[in-house]
Design a protein around this nucleic acid. Structure first.
Lengths: 213, 213
DNA sequence: ACAAAAAATGAATGTTCGTCAAGTTTGAGA
DNA sequence: TCTCAAACTTGACGAACATTCATTTTTTGT
């Protein structure tokens, strides 16, 4: 029996492997989003994906491995959606502003995301509470002393900064009023060097809805 | 029998409560630092603290609760140590630079910290890989188009930024060479508005050792 | 058609968290 | 000093779970 007898050239096996892989990620994504990573059980995921309990381990080394796959996919999809919407924007600053805003909104408003990011909340909280007050004071002093001014910084770092801060903010706050998100976006935009007034303007501009699929 | 007969006015009970509380945090801290939060078992912690397995739950609602207490204490202690060293600095910019550097160094170099911050690694990684490339590109475009310039930003946000980015960097990289940490500190300092040359200078200055206790 | 290789299966294993009934300590009043 | 109720401690226990593995099923090459 040759490959061409059993199906397409690619082979049934490869196709089934892909189907199972997909089904597992989909199942894990659904369940983990509903109950959080810890509360989701491997058996439940396996059942929903319609495979035996042991089969999961042919596809993912461990529960953590599976959770990573889910997180990566979720973030990748969000990035693509943002990409799609901003494709039509003419102002590149607006593209960026929309991206930040959308990441924050999604992490704040979508309960499924909250569940998945849950654990980082603990760490972000501890950081804010324990290190924050000291660092703020030091920064203020250095600025008052005229030692810190403003200068443009490396793009990569600004990016990392914005993304992480935004999500940390989103995950750390239970009920984030719209006005706070607005102000946050403005402040993050200010860090890019744009003036505050323009940042306010950018943040206020109407935002198209994300594509749902 | 009055309170004064049984010990100090405060009472034996309160004292034992404090002793146990301390012993539990100490034990949890030791064990969680060695094996990570997940691998540390409540029984092991109880044994090391010299209390019954059930007693832990009279002091902490859950394992997570205990882990939070440990994290907060650890970070608070680090903040205090930094405070102590920088007290003698004359240049406030140097105070800040030292703080950043020390947080990064500690999170990178100290295996105990790595263990405790472990889970955020997953999220930070996913963020960097999935959102990073898009955000970088958007930022570049906005900058090339002349839409983003440089301006001073809110102190609080810069603080949050620095702390989180530094730790994310530290936790996300397995073997971080000194030169990379140097460069990182310089970049972070640049974001405060100080010029690059001075940032390099600040980062290179000799750093006193932290107090060990 | 057959046997060897690969994958799937789900019952069994070994741990773990958190609970709880039973026992112990505490300290105010008699 | 003795008594008693409230508060605390204890360790055995139950339920739940991630992961393993011997067995069965499917696939592949000849």
């Amino acid at each position: 029996m040759t490959a061409s007898d059993t199906g397409k050239t690619e082979g049934r096996v490869a196709r089934r492997r892909r189907r199972n892989h997909r089904a597992l990620i989909d199942a894990a994504r659904w369940i983990m989003s509903q109950k959080g990573i810890d509360a989701a059980t491997m058996l439940e995921i396996a059942e929903r994906a319609d495979v035996g309990a042991g089969t999961v381990y042919n596809y993912f080394k461990s529960k953590e491995d599976l959770a990573i796959a889910v997180l990566e996919e979720l973030m990748h999809e969000l990035a693509l959606k943002i990409e799609k919407v901003t494709d039509t924007f003419s102002d590149p600053a607006q593209v960026y502003a929309f991206g930040i805003r959308t990441v924050i909104d999604t992490a704040t408003g979508d309960l499924r995301w909250r569940q998945l990011l849950y654990r980082s909340e603990v760490i972000a909280n501890a950081m804010f509470h324990q290190m924050g007050p000291f660092a703020i004071r030091d920064l203020e002093r250095a600025t008052l002393a005229g030692r810190f001014k403003v200068d443009d910084a490396t793009l990569t770092w600004k990016m990392a900064t914005h993304a992480i801060v935004g999500v940390a903010l989103a995950v750390t706050n239970d009920e984030l009023p719209d006005s706070v998100v607005d102000e946050t976006v403005v402040r993050l935009l200010c860090m890019t060097g744009i003036g505050r007034e323009e940042a306010v303007d950018l943040a206020r501009r109407e935002r198209p809805a994300l594509p749902s699929a």
